[in-house]
Amino acid sequence: MTALRLEKEIMACLKVDRQGALVSLTELAKRVSASTPEVYRTSCNLAKKGMVRIITRYWCPEFHPLNLDFSQETLYVLCESCELEYDTTDILVGIYIQVIDIDLIYD
């Protein structure tokens, strides 16, 4: 699939199929039948063009959602549910893609 074709497929999926909802990278790749790295690369290009936003969600290794404070560099993050501090490099991340403007005309 060409890069342009993939961009169109991704936009159609986000706008039409998912009606502007947040879609995980892996699910998006399945829906457009392309490899995840390819979809990630194309989504980054779309984000640069201002057509989608890439959102990250964070979880502790026990899969409790985390709200992170980005203002200060730290090597440990506190999970309030576990009441434990985790090494920042052990934090689980989930990449999600969302269309910025559902009414944007893309053809």
């Binding site: 690369r41 989504s43 980054c44 290009n45 984000a47 640069k48 890439i54 990250t56 964070y58 992170l68 404070d69 980005f70 203002s71 200060q72 560099e73 730290t74 993050v77 920042t88 490099t89 052990d90 934090i91 991340v93 990449i95």
Partner: peptide
Amino acid sequence: ISDKSAYDILGLIPR
């Protein structure tokens, strides 16, 4: 980096 999420994948949190 094409998107700041690249740092998240690399485990660099905060970015």
